[in-house]
Simulated scan of single mutants.
Amino acid sequence: MSQRKVSPTGPDEQATILLKNDSDQMATVALSMHSKQPKRAMISYEKVFL
């Protein structure tokens, strides 16, 4: 499942994605894009198995 918010200039400004597997484990991805913000990324997680 996903949702998005379109900016006045056309491209997506915000987007969220909900992921679910066959074991009913879920993950959420949230993106927020603004052209005048500093270029940085933050990744946070809890109890992740890699």
Rank of each mutant, 00 (worst) to 15 (best):
E13N: 13
Q25V: 09
K39N: 15
D22C: 03
V48L: 14
A41E: 01
K39P: 07
N21L: 07
Q37G: 04
M26R: 10
L19F: 12
G10N: 07
L18P: 06
K47S: 08
P8Y: 03
R4S: 02
E13H: 05
I17V: 14
K20Q: 15
G10A: 13
M42R: 06
P8G: 01
V48P: 00
M26G: 04
A27T: 09
G10R: 07
T9Q: 13
H34T: 07
L31V: 10
I17P: 03
T16H: 03
A15K: 01
P38R: 05
Q14E: 11
D22S: 06
D12K: 10
Q25S: 11
D24C: 01
P11A: 01
K47I: 04
D24W: 14
D22E: 14
K47P: 00
S32R: 00
T16R: 01
I43W: 04
K20R: 11
S44M: 08
Q37R: 06
T28N: 07
P38H: 04
T16E: 01
D12F: 09
A30T: 03
D22M: 10
R40Y: 01
S7D: 15
V6H: 08
E46D: 08
M33P: 00
M1L: 15
P11C: 03
V48R: 00
S32G: 01
Q3S: 10
K20S: 09
L50H: 02
M42H: 08
E46L: 06
S2Y: 13
M1A: 10
M1T: 15
K36G: 07
E46A: 02
S32H: 00
T28H: 02
A27C: 04
S44K: 00
F49Q: 00
V29R: 03
Q37E: 11
Y45W: 13
M42Q: 14
T28M: 12
G10F: 14
V6G: 08
K20N: 03
I43D: 01
D22F: 08
S35E: 05
T28G: 08
V6K: 02
I43P: 02
K20V: 15
F49W: 09
K20D: 03
M42L: 15
R4V: 02
I17K: 09
A15G: 07
A15T: 00
V29E: 02
Q25L: 07
R40N: 06
Y45I: 03
S35N: 06
S2H: 15
A41H: 06
S35I: 05
A41C: 15
E46C: 06
F49C: 04
S23R: 14
Q3K: 04
P11G: 06
R40S: 09
V29L: 14
L18Q: 13
M1W: 13
M42E: 10
D24P: 05
T16V: 12
T28C: 11
F49T: 12
P38F: 07
K5M: 08
M1C: 10
Q14W: 02
M33A: 06
T16L: 09
T28I: 13
A41P: 10
S44G: 07
N21F: 05
T9W: 15
L50E: 08
E46W: 04
